[in-house]
């Protein structure tokens, strides 16, 4: 059985939305971080689906770029999170309230 490409696109859009909404409503920085990964992987699914629909290898090649960039972002992001929450109990974004105005 084969599915139409638009199903994959809709799934990707749904996953992307879950990630975006999750990033905006969740309070734990690590969970927000996971939501970014969700968004990036939704983009990957979109790219692969389009590459299949267009019979073009460019979209699949792009996925590798996204994977590498996501890995680099994870490294830096976790580094920042560890640096900031080293002396705290939980990684809650609401604790960050020094900068306001």
């Amino acid at each position: 059985m084969s599915l139409d490409g638009s199903w994959y696109l809709c799934l990707a859009a749904a996953v992307f939305t879950i990630g975006a909404v999750g990033l905006l409503v969740r309070r734990n920085v690590l969970v927000m971080f996971m939501c970014v990964e969700l968004m990036l992987n939704a983009v990957n699914l979109t790219l692969v689906t389009f590459a299949r629909m267009l019979d073009d290898i460019g979209g699949q090649a792009l996925v590798f770029f996204v994977l590498v960039v996501a890995a680099a972002e994870v490294v830096v992001g976790l580094g920042i999170i560890v640096a900031i929450f080293r002396r705290r109990v939980g990684a809650t974004a609401d604790d960050l309230h020094l900068l306001r105005g």
């Binding site: 992307f16 971080f33 979209g59 996204v66 972002e73 992001g77 920042i80 900031i84 020094l98």
Partner: peptide
Amino acid sequence: ESREAAIKYFVLGAFSSAVFLYGVALVYG
């Protein structure tokens, strides 16, 4: 303050790059 700036910039920056990338994917499609 500096560490807080880093994490705020990081979270919103990563969010915006994901949005940008989704735009790239749709334009590609």
